[in-house]
Design a protein around this nucleic acid. Sequence first.
DNA 1: AGGACACTACCTACCGTTCGTTAGTTATTA
DNA 2: TAATAACTAACGAACGGTAGGTAGTGTCCT
Lengths: 194, 194
Amino acid sequence: MKKDSTQDRIKEVALILFARKGFEGTSLSEIASGVGIKKPSLYAHYKSKEDLFLGVIHKVSVDYNAFFIKTAEELSDRSPEDQLYYLLHKNTGYLRNDELGLIFKRMMLFPPESLRSDIYAMFEKTEDVMRQVIQSILVQMVREEEWEQVFDAYLCLLDGVFEQVFYYSPEEHKKRLENSWSAFIKGVYSREEK
Amino acid sequence: MKKDSTQDRIKEVALILFARKGFEGTSLSEIASGVGIKKPSLYAHYKSKEDLFLGVIHKVSVDYNAFFIKTAEELSDRSPEDQLYYLLHKNTGYLRNDELGLIFKRMMLFPPESLRSDIYAMFEKTEDVMRQVIQSILVQMVREEEWEQVFDAYLCLLDGVFEQVFYYSPEEHKKRLENSWSAFIKGVYSREEK
DNA sequence: AGGACACTACCTACCGTTCGTTAGTTATTA
DNA sequence: TAATAACTAACGAACGGTAGGTAGTGTCCT
């Protein structure tokens, strides 16, 4: 089923190494030896280190967009509150796996200088997707003039929770997620008065 | 007053470069030429690249702890709510300046593999300081059994807001900060009723 | 059917450059 | 005089990348 082409194997290995050690911190020799071939053989598949790297990032960005949309669809029959809650959970879980969150966040925050614009271009789509998905949920639960405020707060929650994935143990992190979520949702519902 | 020793100049230049391009992405030649000396001269002041790097990180961590404590003291005569609000603002402002936030976050999230434990050891103190300062404010405004929940939410807010410093323009970011803050504080105050 | 050709995916060997680092020397300063 | 802080020169190692070669595979032309 899955074409296990060398090209894909290279991408898999490179993803892990780039995620853990960054672009400059990863050498082509390492990648090659992880795949089980010699360094120059990489050039049969990618024409430079940057080319390989951008290939990896492109795959990551496409995968993430697909995941986000798919998850939102799966949840679409729940209440808006539940949708936001599970989206937060699923998103965190997804990004915790497979080095995917690691490389995603690394590239958003600290892209290699020379590739910054290419990387940002790839992730622009991602922001769009997230905005649309979250917007479509929020319009069901808050008044229009409050929409933006709640959206910003939810995105901040998403960012904060995600960042903490790196600091804390899974248990500690789950506790913090639940507490942060409680505070968020209380803030949303207390919004009617005053 | 300020001893403008070469040693300090090296640290300043290194801070900026390490912050922007990371440990592996910054070469000693760059640092030297930024200071205006030749690469081998660096070894009159630091015995290795790692030594220099840890020196920089140490300074960053000490400075940040001092800032956090000083800011909290300056605000201590305000209402607890105001203290939290301005702490959020000041913290964001401080970290935005001088590449300080950049290197701080980079090292928390993506430390160079070989120095991970040294770096984490330095920032342990920071977490302690923050916990103490925030705790001393929170006990004045929420019931004891809710303390932990609000603390987690506030820290998540701090993390989320800080991360967004990198993505958005100052204006956009300020808007998002205010919106996220509003949601947070409403959540805190709506906490009395069931 | 069989040979010439081209293509793919790998190899070994090596290129020039840059890296972090050391040695040895000199000029300034205390 | 002794220490300090700079220098020039050079080191070995590793880097990204190239050249050239070689098996294996399929394809086209008689």
